[in-house]
Design a protein around this nucleic acid. Structure first.
Lengths: 114, 114
DNA sequence: CAGAATCCGTTACGATACTG
DNA sequence: CAGTATCGTAACGGATTCTG
C-alpha cells in the first residue's frame, strides 16, 4: 500500500474534474502532515524537518513551494544571515485542517470496527 | 503536478503516524473519485467505469478491493451469469463524502481568490 | 540555516489482451 | 459483465552533495 496522489496523472490524466484538482491540494505523501503541523502555528523550515523526522529537505521544500503557489501556505523570509524562513497557513489554508481532521475521524472509527 | 498518495511509502516510509494511515484511505489518483461517485448510491463495476471515463479496469478493480478491505466499500456479487457486482459505501465509508466535500470547498475558495 | 542539484529505486497508472 | 495478467512509463520520494 502506497500513498500518493498525482496532481496531474502519469501521462494522459486520471480525473480531469474539480474533485481531483482540489484533492491535489493535499497530494503527496507528506503534504497532509506538513499542513497538519503548520496548523499549530507558524513554523520554520528546520522546525518542520524536526517535526517530520524522515522527510528529506528536497521534498519538504517542494511541498512548501507547491502549497505556497496554491495559496495554502505563506512564506516569510527574514533577510538575516544565516537565513530564517517562517511558514504559516493562510486564512484559507487553515480551513484544510478540519477537513483533514474529518478524515482522521473516519480512520479512527474504521479502526475501532475491527 | 501529479496527484498521488502512498498508503505506505516507497521503501523506508514517509510518516508512520495516524494521519498518514488515515489519509491512505483516499490514497491513489482515482480513489476520491470512486468514493465520490459511490456517494450517489450503489453502483455496478461497469457503471463506475462509465462514471470515470479514463480509469482502467485494473485500477478500478484495485481501488475497490483496497477500499473493501478497509471497510469503506461493500461488495455484493449476484450469482448470475454474466456476473453482476454492486458496490456501495458502508456506513462509515459514507462519512468520507462530507470530508471530501470540505476539501473541495477549500479548493473552490482558493480559486475564487485569484 | 534554508535550500538547489543530481542520481536512482519504487510505484501508480494506462493500454492491451485474455478469461469465466 | 467483471475482472486478471503482463508490460511500459512517468513521476514521487530518499540520499547525498553543494551553496549563499
Amino acid at each position: 500500500m502506497s500513498l500518493r496522489m498525482r496532481k496531474s496523472p502519469a501521462s494522459p490524466l486520471p480525473p480531469p474534474c474539480a474533485l481531483t484538482e482540489c484533492m491535489s491540494l493535499i497530494a503527496g505523501a507528506w503534504t497532509p502532515n506538513v499542513i497538519w503541523h503548520l496548523g499549530g502555528g507558524p513554523r520554520r523550515f528546520g522546525e518542520l524537518r524536526a517535526d517530520l523526522p524522515r522527510i528529506s529537505a528536497r521534498v519538504l521544500s517542494a511541498r512548501l513551494k507547491a502549497l505556497e503557489a496554491r495559496g495554502v501556505v505563506h512564506r516569510r523570509a527574514a533577510p538575516t544571515s544565516p537565513p530564517s524562513v517562517e511558514y504559516s497557513l493562510t486564512e484559507v489554508g487553515r480551513e484544510l485542517v478540519p477537513a483533514l481532521h474529518a478524515i482522521v475521524e473516519v480512520g479512527a472509527r474504521l479502526k475501532r470496527l475491527r
